[in-house]
Amino acid sequence: MLELRLIQGSLLKKVLEAIKDLVTEANFDCSATGFSLQAMDSSHVALVALLLRSEGFDHYRCDRNLSMGINLNNMSKMLRCAGPEDIITIKGDDGTDTVTFMFESQKQDKISDFEMKLMDIDSEHLGIPDAEYQAIVRMPSAEFARICKDLGSIGDTVVISVTKEGVKFFTRGDVGSANIVCRQNTSVDKPEDSTVIEMNEPVSLTFALRYMNSFTKATTLSEVVTISLSSELPVVVEYKIAEMGYIRFYLAPKIED
């Protein structure tokens, strides 16, 4: 028996919109810890890891660990039928091949049940060890989205370099090149507007902008994005989900052939 009630149902809607273009099918795992997902894109270059902790739900019942194979496009279609203020409850049962999304209006005067078919998905689970990163950049998520969009109109790849001067985003394309530098800037009044750079050593890595632009679909989930870089690891682009958990995107770099 599974019953997860989320007062702020819009969070789930936003999560789906953020990941459905990157990953088409995935297993949602439900355990005492929370509702989670780990899935790679079809070319095994990017990975999304989502965690919505059980404490973040208004009601969380998960009698035993359950994995639900879901077509994210279909789930997104169903969640789009929930109003922006609706409370969403996810209901499932062992041994059934469906999951039900229940939408309740704030005033409880409209209740909708959408039942969706589950599917069997053979998914690979990657072990992602905790790691030390050479540089961690925290910046306004909207600023990062703007940079990725702007650079995406010039080139296909972005070189992200962190030095003590700041973080530099560089691209080159047929029409020319672009270079954007963000310096550390701390805003006491509005910490979410700050750009904070923690650097152990300078690092410079190249990534496909197509993926970065896909990650920025999570911008509505958090005002701040954290970009963790190490020459030994895929970059991690993390959006915290208030009080609940996170959505993390991992992206393998490009290297000179």
């Binding site: 095994h44 072990g127 393998a252």
Partner: peptide, 14 residues
């Protein structure tokens, strides 16, 4: 053109 690495270059299946 630079070579796109995969996640398998870094992470292993658990």
């Amino acid at each position: 053109t630079p070579l796109q690495l995969q996640l398998y270059n870094y992470f292993i299946q658990s």
